[in-house]
Nucleic acid binder design. Structure first.
Lengths: 298, 298
DNA sequence: CGATCTTACGGGATTCGTAAACATA
DNA sequence: TATGTTTACGAATCCCGTAAGATCG
């Protein structure tokens, strides 16, 4: 003998309508069916809820005391269902994204801005961390999707999209390299370089590309942060090789960037999720938006 | 496609158990039936709630966001049902009683006290008003039951029990009448009387009884309240005729009461409810207790 | 290969609507 | 008598349990 939402909805509706027939109409139900529902609820509760005869229907004192309790619960439940449906339709929910700091400070803000125009109820939880940490967060399900670097080979992750970030030479406007339209790897040979520290994904790519070209770099400084590298280049310590999209580079008026005429100077970017996990609808939608904004890797 | 409490309970149970089989056992259900319930809920919501394969079951992000919402609503609903059952069983609820002030200040407090020992959750709403007002309150359903005076003839009210209040002579200990064990109507003839004012139910009975016995009363004072009458008797203004149960009389150490040897000196008391109205179970129980405590009228 | 979820299907309980009976102002 | 609730009953639906199938670690 267990409670039934339909019976409670019937009770509330009859109480509001003050009349079985009208309540039945409002519930798209035949009137006898409604009688049965009310009687069933009365049996489960163990008390009469309405005093009724052929001419009038009135709440009993028990019904009067019960109505607000059940009505509140019913409203809560229906609100929860609406919320649930909003999640299901992608009209609401939380996008939990782990991503590289470069991405977080370049394309991401505008992507979020544009997405929220379309889905105002979407919430975002952004973790901007280094590539290895992105993978860890997605694997541990502290994030649902990740924008990570490298040719991530991780069996527990699905790759949803591959993109890339070209690396460019960053130098002062007045530097000799600034006069060239594009730069060969050999141009960097023996030139003082400011590179981000070993362990960063950018550095890994640069090291590999220079080695492949048999260049012997003259590493002047190895800061942790791009912002520091930019400041060092600005003051003439050397030139740097950084992602083209990095905000730190683009925002600096005294510097110019030059493409490197070498396909290995490219940092792969992967959009990943955990294998076997279903994404919330809102997150799927945001993934679509990101894919459109990130150039497909050839 | 509407929400079902059972499906929600299934969702919460699986989330807690982390496993369909154990959840099914806990719900006293076969495991395939549980699969169906979860799938149905997922369809109504429009989103996958668990990522599951043959070895593991885990909430999706959507499920994780939904769980607290639905769980809270479910708990509320089940609490409301428990409350409802408590009403039905008479273990809880409000007794709404309108009664004569005499009753409210004599037998009632002890009745309530004793009843609450048995039903601690019972609440009381007492309106102590004059007899005509008792009837009005019950008729307007501002009270569920009434203790009223007179031979209430009111077609809209059902009489649940008839009782009576004997009227007694009240006089100072030192008064001549105090020496008699019982008093005849004729003893009151020509004696200075302190009677409550016309319009009170007691006065109506006294007037009728004296008239029937062809006594010509010497009315010294006509106060509104019994308390005042008692004070007047105390100071020797006369003797009074008051209900035997009245607290005002019994509490006064300097006075004595003497029965009147005449069956017409009796105030009828009726326990009434509105016709066609079902009483809450707790109120029914209290009615039973009152009936036991109120002598049945012959 | 074994534990566990999913699919398929038959039977039983639930619940609906129609029609007729019933009750009260 | 008219309006509105209750009862009765057949039909459609829902829902469960059993058994067989699929899947992943």
């Amino acid at each position: 003998m267990d409670l039934n939402l339909r019976d409670i909805r019937a009770f509330v509706t009859v109480a509001q309508a003050g009349n079985f027939t009208r309540a039945a109409t409002r519930l798209h139900l035949s009137q006898p069916a409604l009688t049965v529902q009310i009687r069933r609820l009365e049996e489960t509760v163990g008390a009469r809820l309405f005093d009724r005869n052929s001419r009038s229907v009135a709440l009993t004192q028990t019904g009067r005391e019960l109505l607000p309790l059940l009505q509140r619960s019913l409203n809560d439940m229906e609100q929860a269902l609406r919320d649930a449906r909003a999640f299901g339709e992608g009209a609401s929910g939380t996008v939990r994204l782990a991503c590289l700091p470069t991405f977080a400070s370049s394309a991401l803000p505008e992507l979020i801005q544009a997405f929220r125009k379309r889905v105002p109820q979407a919430r975002f939880q952004i973790r901007d961390v280094v590539a290895s940490m992105v993978n860890t967060l997605v694997r541990n399900e502290e994030a649902d999707i990740g924008v990570t670097g490298g040719n991530t080979v991780d069996a527990t992750l699905d790759v949803l999209h591959m993109s890339e970030d070209r690396l460019v030479v960053v130098c002062p406007k007045t530097h000799a390299l600034a006069k060239k339209r594009s730069i060969k790897v050999s141009d960097l040979d023996g030139m003082p370089l400011v590179l981000t520290a070993s362990g960063t994904s950018v550095r890994a790519v640069v090291d590999a590309a220079l080695a492949a070209a048999r260049c012997t770099p003259d590493i002047a400084c190895e800061p942790m942060y791009m912002m520091t590298a930019v400041a060092m280049v600005r003051s003439g310590l050397g030139v740097s090789v950084l992602p083209a999209t990095a905000r730190e580079v683009r925002a600096e008026p005294g510097l110019v960037t030059r493409p490197i005429d070498d396909p290995s100077f490219v940092r792969p970017i992967a959009l990943v999720k955990k294998r076997g996990r279903t994404l919330p609808r809102v997150t799927e939608e945001f993934v679509n938006a990101m894919v459109l904004a990130m150039p497909e890797r050839k």
